[in-house]
Design a protein around this nucleic acid. Structure first.
Lengths: 187, 187
DNA sequence: CGCCATCCATACGCAAACGTATGGAAAGGG
DNA sequence: CCCTTTCCATACGTTTGCGTATGGATGGCG
């Protein structure tokens, strides 16, 4: 029985839990009392670690932004000569089936960004970095500047647009289609 | 002074106003008392026309779905031989700059669909119809079945994915990039 | 041992929003 | 002209959530 082990939370635990809730409830579902219940404490704890709800939201944004930027830099690094498979890898990684949680967070943050300036800025930074990294990859593939930029934009727009659409994701046919689309973007 | 003209609302007026609010506040911002205030009445009126909030939401979904389906059928009709310009037209029409309001509604409904089964079904129907219509267009362009389906999926994923991203939409460079992307999708 | 800092619980006031109940005004038909 | 139907206002009870205030428990440290 670890019921007596005084579970001491810190800011980071709260942020992690908040991102969970954000993923499947959206920002508007991110209420401090709900979050506290899920953490097994009361909001007394929350207001010890955070000034107010806004304080938490900003922390969530900060954590998300940093993670995404670190991620994209990592995902777009490729050994010379291995750029093409790396492009396919990026498409795969950011696609819905794998990394389901990540996609849900992504969508929640982007919807959030439509109404919140701070979230908007965070998404803006992430998008800029991603498009930049993607473009670099296509450039190393030998594409001209404009074409590389266009492919990169197309890639991310497609990937996140796809996760926005509703159709049978387990359809065998869809797998084939996605392969064709990946070819269209990468080659 | 038309202050005395008793503005009599009907279900449809409410739905129209609701879609306005939905567009820039999301479903969670769609509160009946807020909506009533915007309509210049109190919620007493609302509950006369609707059983409850859910009743309104369903009406909104129904209206949205019908409109989108009627729209896509219209937009993908092309004179024989004029299919290619029609593809470019579809991309243009569903892109962010024109039709800003439509895009906002689209995003709001799709985010809504992540948590509401009814909204999910509506989006599913719309997506199916759109992909089907788009595929038809590519087929008439002479593409093989798989390729036509892939292009259609890519088109819609790109278009809505694009409206999800944040970057300078007035950048002159972006216009050129979008042209390149449209070429990549259409040709 | 006793004290203080850290972390959390409890209780409160307040506001927004849902849905209900009931009353009232306006309009049209008999 | 009255009366019924239609449409809306007002008032109420309830829930949910924010933020504050205050007290309690726990552990380290002198």
């Amino acid at each position: 029985m670890e019921a007596k082990t005084r579970v001491t939370l810190d800011r980071n635990s709260w942020v992690r839990a908040a991102i969970e809730v954000l993923a499947d409830q959206g920002v508007d579902g991110l209420r401090v009392e709900v979050l506290a219940k899920q953490c097994g404490v009361t909001k007394g704890s929350f207001y010890w670690h955070f000034k107010d709800r806004r304080d938490l939201l900003d922390a969530v944004l900060h954590t998300w932004k940093d993670g995404r930027i670190r991620d994209i830099v990592k995902q777009t690094r490729a050994e010379p000569g291995k750029e093409l498979p790396q492009v396919y890898h990026v498409i795969e990684v950011y696609s819905a089936n794998r990394n389901r949680k990540g996609i849900l967070i992504e969508l929640a943050v982007r919807d959030w960004a439509r109404r919140d300036p701070a979230a908007h800025r965070a998404v803006e930074e992430v998008d800029r970095k991603r498009i930049e990294c993607g473009k670099e990859l296509f450039l190393r593939l030998g594409l001209p500047d404009d074409e590389a930029a266009a492919r990169s934009l197309l890639l991310y727009a497609y990937v996140f647009g796809q996760s926005l659409m509703v159709y049978d994701r387990h359809d065998e046919n869809v797998v084939r289609l996605k392969q064709l689309i990946a070819d269209r973007i990468a080659r």
